[in-house]
Write a protein that binds this DNA or RNA. Structure first.
Lengths: 211, 211
DNA sequence: CGGAAACTTGAGCAGAGTCAATAATTGTGG
DNA sequence: CCACAATTATTGACTCTGCTCAAGTTTCCG
């Protein structure tokens, strides 16, 4: 794994971001992508009318910043939801490197197309899903992501507020809250503020695909 | 423009697709992207439950098939909405070529990131928008796309059915129909089956951003 | 021409939004 | 470390947008 070695040499470990700090902002010049090493961030875009749209949450292990690649400026802003540390991967140096490591090109294409796939799943969810389906799916996604990083799939703390969840899924905070209490009443989850336990995964899975 | 020359040499002009014919299907092996030369197509994906989700419409001048690039199989299926002709751009030969034409690499990244941007606008629309906003936005998008190709921005024929529109925007066909008649009553558009005239563009723009 | 598919329109209903009041949690300065 | 303010979350009553069900009309196409 010599390639990994070379890669490691150009990665910069940045200082941790505090909650609410920006990793980058819309229209900043694109010069790096970032890997989340700990914590969690949200990506947002601002509409012409000035209101915020949450485009996604990114947890430990995920890579953000690809959205700036083509036009050389970031399309979204990314904000820390909690204290988070990120690795900066400078892109100009990465481009030099891709000449040496042909697989790297392909790797980037893969990252981008994964993003497209992810966005499209979200489109399907937003287009068809009830409030309960949306929230159940979000919980399952976080659970799955945790699984990949060897964290607990059944007990975790939500890094984002109800406002962010509602904004992301196209729901009001009241509805988000009501769905959480409903899922709890139905013994699918246990939730206390932001700490959540999935008590019946298969029921949650059923709910996420339209009871 | 020698590059364009080289490009032209590897493009294949295929036979026209008839309405309802597939350009490619989900899980087909990826080997080309396609430029729409005339007509219109829709991209769809099928959920686990077997129902169809319209992921987008692609009109004259657009490029489809990028969704297969990373994993070497197409994520979506693409179907002709009307008789359409497409150019096939074989990817393996394009890859050889990118070595000769460095700008081509960048061009592909641009196409992909444009797709991401587009998807994200759709996410914002689906997440926040009322039925009227959704439909107005769709009409404006078609109008704009026509403008780019030097077609009429104010009078055109919708290539897709109400079912497809509803499916795409997360609405029922009844709602689609009602919104059309409402926009007509408000003198924003004139619509007769699939032929549509935008009579008050600024009103339509207002409607699209939330009256 | 006739049947199927696509579209429109209406009446009633339900899921999610709005408005409003309260409770819990977090953060801050004394 | 406590008290108070600010933020965040819950819950209830009511409203409204968009869905369902149903009937009728128009368009398409063999």
């Amino acid at each position: 794994m010599d390639d990994i070695d070379k890669l490691n040499r150009i990665i910069q470990r940045g200082k941790p971001l505090q909650k609410g700090e920006y990793l980058y902002r819309t229209n900043d010049v694109f010069n790096a992508v970032f890997a989340i090493r700990s914590g969690a961030v949200k990506a947002i875009s601002i509409s012409e009318k000035g209101d915020e749209q949450v485009m996604g949450f990114h947890l430990l292990g995920e890579v953000v910043g690809m959205d700036g690649l083509a036009e050389n400026i970031y399309n979204n802003s990314v904000i820390a939801l909690e204290t988070s540390s990120v690795c900066e991967i400078p892109f100009n140096r990465l481009e030099e490197l891709s000449l040496l490591i042909p697989t790297l090109q392909r790797h980037f294409l893969l990252l981008m197309s994964r993003e497209i796939k992810h966005d499209q799943q979200l489109i399907a969810l937003l287009s068809k899903g009830s409030a309960e389906m949306k929230i159940s799916t979000l919980l399952l996604n976080i659970s799955t992501s945790n699984g990949l990083r060897h964290l607990s799939t059944n007990n975790f703390t939500l890094p984002m507020s109800r406002v962010d969840i509602g904004n992301f899924l196209g729901l009001t905070i009241e509805t988000v809250s009501r769905i959480f209490t409903r899922l709890q009443k139905n013994k699918v989850i246990t939730i206390d503020n932001r700490s959540i336990s999935i008590t019946d995964t298969s029921a949650l899975r059923t709910a996420s695909s339209g009871a």
